[in-house]
Design a protein around this nucleic acid. Sequence first.
DNA 1: TAACTCACG
DNA 2: ACGTACGTGAGTTAT
Length: 885
Amino acid sequence: MGHLVLIDGNSIANRAFYALPPLSTSSGLHTNAVLGFTTMLLKVLEEMKPTHLLVAFDAGKVVFRHSEFTEYKAGRAKTPPELSEQFPVLRELLDAFSIHWTELTGYEADDIIGTLTRQADASGLATTVITGDKDMLQLVSQHISVALTRKGVSELEMYDVAAIQEKYGLAPLQIIDLKGLMGDTSDNIPGVPGVGEKTAMKLLHEYGSVESVLENIDAVSGKKLQENLRNNVEQAKMSKTLATIFREAPIEIETEKTTYAGYNGKVLVDFFKKLEFKSLIPKVKVSAEDEAAEEISGEQAPSFTHEVVTLENRDQFAHLLGSPMSFTVELDGENYHRAPVLGFGLASAEKALFVPVDVATGWEAFSAWLGDASMEKIVFDGKKDTVALAWHGLELRGVTLDVYLASYLLNAAESNPTLSDVSALYSELRVASDEEIYGKGAKRALPSAEKLGEHVARKAAALWQSIPAVKREIEAHQLEELLFTLEGPLSLVLAQMEHTGVKVDGSRLEAMGVELDKHLEQLTTQIHEQAGGSFNINSPKQLGEVLFDKLGLPVWKKTKTGPSTSADVLEKLAPYHPIIEMILHFRQLGKLRSTYIEGLLKEIHPRTGKVHTLFNQASTATGRLSSTEPNLQNIPIRLEEGRKIREAFVPSESGWYMLAADYSQIELRVLAHISQDANLIDAFQKGMDIHTRTAMDVFGVAENEVTSLMRRQAKAVNFGIVYGISDYGLSQNLNITRKEAADFIERYFAVFAGVRKYMDDIVKQAKQDGYVTTLLHRRRYLPDITSSNFNLRSFAERTAMNTPIQGTAADIIKLAMIRMQERLQAEGLHSRMLLQVHDELVFEVPENELETMRKIVPEVMAAAIKLDVPLQADVNDGRTWYEAK
DNA sequence: TAACTCACG
DNA sequence: ACGTACGTGAGTTAT
């Protein structure tokens, strides 16, 4: 005997849409409803193993019930565009699953399903209806059960006759009577006023049906209820009719036409790739027949075999080390400065190899191949490979394509792509995630030698296979230049910087730590005294209780979990109580101790006495770098006490100096260039202080009349402009009213009209294209720019304004870094580039190169690109990073 | 693991 | 009317 599963397509799609967070592909197509539908389908196929399967959809807008009651479903909100655009995709999805689907003009999915269950009931075929609509429970019978979605879409709750009896104390058909009495606001079925679920159930338990209730109104207890029933006899009858699922639709679907024979795994995987459902791909079962079916249809099936190189046979493999090949380094751990090397993967069209690390050690043919620039290598995160090898004294040369960087450029929203992710998109070969192979957290362990070898070789093979598609995509998006002349070369510069590291004076940090400890202890005592008791100052919860309950200070702002105790709030509370200043100071020093003293000390390499950060080149949405383990891009500078931390950053060679150079106002200069605002360009060409100039223009005063308050406010406006300004944001920042902030903005735009035009145009363009770009064509997709959700849309609009500015500035300093490294090489200088902090470069410099570096660093930075305004960089040096100010 | 807070550009 | 400034990473507490 078979099993027929009928799915209420619209109901499930709606459920999925509202249950899942917004989600979209890199090209901006919303997919959350499709994703939810898909997980539900995979689960149903797995657990119910249907022999027959059909999905029913509502067709068109005219539903025959309208002719009976014009207000039917009038209360329902219009389907948002983010959902309606997913219905065609849903139909494609079902086709990819080889699942039959149907729609019938003038009928709703319920009616189609109702009719089919009637037919199925007659034939005695076991049937399950899947829906989110409780009304459907009326269809339950001996052979038919209904599965209701619960919490999202993939958890189902099964109802048969007994389950309905247990939950409602009613027979399935009485569900209709229940609706007739209580109504349904979501379908705009009126029911009887004053009758809710409780009353309706009570009436039905007593009388059995709407008709019977109406016949016995006089016997019903409750005067008000009697009156309501008497006044609404017709409405109750009509409500029952509306709630009744129509089971006589003029459709002929023979059971055989719904037969389900399963899907072709390859077809489904291809479809998932298109929708970027990467996490679902591993759940698809691809059978040998699927592969075969593909082959017959002409496509090449992915085949994978690999060989493991051993100490005994490695000489026979030497001649296979050719060009071009894909190459991967497998590490035991995330941090490639300290993770041991496990082995290497190599692949080309003919073969895939795994070279365990002990086999590679001392294998001259291999190290020669690695260092041979004429041997072309395709890598996945070549910076990682380069640094990992450098720690073992090996050099990697001849990298011609880095698929990791390519993937980041193709979609910066997908930060830190893994080889498993990327191969799912661009190659036929599946690669397990490292987590699947190694496990995670405490369960992490090395796999068996066989498993490891297969995994690594598979990575190399998938990397090889991804090359044509990746190259094609890069060309199609005009990203060749960005990849091959910017990010690729930059990764080598960064590799050198990371491997070189920055010397940190640990004993200096420790001494500062001792002072901080003393100070913090005093503050703790004072704060507890003021609070009248001991508590954990670091706990926002406990602190909140002390401040707002015990001391009765006013609540200024709330977070999700309680009153906010953030610094900007505390500053406003300072006048009320002396404890506030102490808390602010405690927070400031506590941060220094935990993050910058203890945190940094933990990261000092025991052998080199240096910190070796990881510059993440593929993690930000705008094209900036980020820095981790430790983060060297957020070392304190704004407050003097914190700035002292920089005294611990010193040159690694005695007698050398630290030298730092930073761009002056690079983002506003970029804005001047891309907006072509005449006034802003003029200000920079005249070499003026931009905030003073803005104050002059906005307040209409002469240069010598600009007060420090005016300059401070103008500066905040300039920041706001770069961030995609809003009056609210500016008012928060300047502690002024929204009205005053709006006034500032208006005056700013009156003078800098070109900037206003840029802001308007870039948002329009983003809406039209779905993405924005930087000067060097770096692209960021903004799927939310057309959202009907005000918040999401506004956020995307501000992002559209900010990203070209922040991203172009990032492009420029990256260019400067490459030029700078070339220049050091060309001039035979020994100075070393150590850090990049978004608009600043830090070097260590031998004394005899100081003069040269003071000259060429700002020169190279300023000349990195030619804009319609001059670029300017300022340079400073000293014995420590602190002194280079 | 999420939420909060805070360091930087 | 809606509720926020843009981009990051790390430490601590509470769940």
